[in-house]
Amino acid sequence: MFLSFFSDLIEQEFMLRALISGLILGVIAPLIGSIVVIRRLSFIADTLGHFSLVGISVSLFLSVTVPGTLSVILSENPLYFGITLSVLGGLLIEFFRRYYKNYKEISMVIVMSMGTALSAIFLSVSGKTGTLYNYMFGSILTISWDSVIMIGIAAILVFFLFAFFGRQIISVSFDENNAKFLGVNRGLFQIIFIIMLSLVVSVMLESAGVLLISSMMIIPIAASMKIGWSYRSTTAIAIVFSELSVIIGLWASYSIHLPSGAAIVSVNVIILVLVALIRRVVLKRNIAKHPTEPME
């Protein structure tokens, strides 16, 4: 069963596409996720996922209303609209965050409900509600080359951002009030980060699904921050966990026909539970060995 899975990975083109996109997302999701966690923005990823679904549904709606080749493009590549709307959603969140200064979480509820409502309306009038399931729970096996390329472009942008501004991103995230003393414009930083996050969220839409995007970003970090000893090690461990869950999730999706996003996230959750259990056992054993030392 495993053997045929691995040979199919290379021989079947759709499997290769799934593998490539999964492996790339396995790196960028926890990388962006680490910053999302540090900045306590975990719900923003979720909100953006819902909002990018508006783009998908608008695209599907237009594909049944406009004639000719444009219709084909819109129906086959709804992700273009998805990305645009996700970025717009990000900017909307930012707008509402500044509008309700002391109740910033209101912004997410507004944008998320707006996103859910609009996508339900457009999907329903387009009559393509059948595709909704794929976008809700992800279907990495049906991903197109176009989407793989977009995931690649998003990854290059993320790497570029981290390579050149990694220090600033990390330091401002840990200590936002002191951004000024680092020569960083906090408002601009916030906008760039939210655009970046919107981009990553929207390219993850097809493989992870709206409901599971944020978990793919957050859960590997949640597991690794309990065993990491530094920012670097924590992020590296999270990437390993993430890649592991992508490969196992892909196998589950291919062999036992589970929705890919759900399978990947389930593996992530299993890893999280295992980490917590093993950590507990190790700590207990340490205490038994060195009874005088305090726990942690």
């Binding site: 220090r167 840990f174 200590d175 920012y231």
Partner: peptide, 28 residues
């Protein structure tokens, strides 16, 4: 300008970060 506040409880402690990392990510 360097600044040290009275309390530093707004800093994020739960995410692993070493002293060395804190000091090297801080400076441009």
């Amino acid at each position: 300008v360097g600044y040290v506040s009275q309390v530093i409880d707004e800093f994020n402690y739960e995410f692993p970060l070493t002293v060395n990392e804190l000091l090297s990510i801080t400076k441009l």
